[in-house]
Amino acid sequence: MKFSFDHNNINVLDLEKSVEFYKEALGFVETRRHHPSDDSFTLVFLGDETTQHKLELTCMKDRTEPYNLGENEFHLAVVADNYDEAYAYHKKMGCICYENKPMGIYFIMDPDGYWTEVIPKK
């Protein structure tokens, strides 16, 4: 038996704001959108146009309160083909929330408080 990654999911309050953030910050593109017949939520799948892995954003129609992310000890990670350019771009966007210079990585934060680690291409 073998398993492979397909997608990760996060729940968001403002779907279009989140889609725009991931588009602007990481160049992700919308690959699919789903509305159930009862219109209680919307799913948007985002891809990097390089791998098959997707980020699924779920927006619950009646949700108004921010999600409790606990200690937020989970994150996504992406590889930057030009780390220095990515760092300067994210610094200008104002979305860098944590830097670990000795490890050569940094994190950006989306509108809902989720972190994405940015690592250099090896």
Score class of each variant (00 low, 15 high):
K54L: 15
Q52T: 11
F28R: 04
F41M: 10
Q52F: 06
E30W: 01
T31D: 03
Y106T: 06
V118S: 12
Y114L: 05
E99N: 10
M103N: 13
M103W: 13
I96V: 11
L13E: 06
L13A: 06
K91Q: 15
A77Y: 07
W115T: 07
Y98E: 13
D112Q: 05
P36T: 04
H75P: 00
V78K: 01
E56L: 04
P36G: 06
V118K: 09
L26W: 01
Y114N: 12
Y98F: 15
H75R: 05
V12I: 05
D81A: 08
L57V: 02
K23F: 07
K23A: 11
L15H: 08
K23P: 00
L43Q: 06
F41K: 04
K61N: 08
D84H: 09
P102D: 05
A80W: 00
I96D: 05
P111I: 08
E20D: 13
K54H: 13
M109V: 12
N82M: 05
R63D: 04
L13W: 01
F21H: 09
K17T: 12
D84C: 00
Y87R: 14
G27C: 03
G70P: 06
E85S: 15
L13M: 10
P36C: 03
C95L: 05
Y106L: 12
S40N: 10
K91E: 14
G70Y: 07
N72W: 06
Y22C: 04
E16K: 14
E71A: 14
E65P: 00
V79N: 08
M93V: 01
T42V: 13
Y114C: 01
L13N: 12
L57R: 04
Y22M: 02
Y67F: 06
N72A: 10
L76C: 09
N68C: 06
L26Q: 01
F21W: 11
S37I: 10
A80C: 07
D14M: 10
F28L: 15
F107C: 07
L69G: 00
C95F: 06
E71M: 13
K23N: 11
I119G: 10
H53D: 11
D112V: 08
M93S: 10
D48C: 04
V19L: 01
F45W: 15
D62E: 14
E65Q: 12
R32V: 06
T42Y: 01
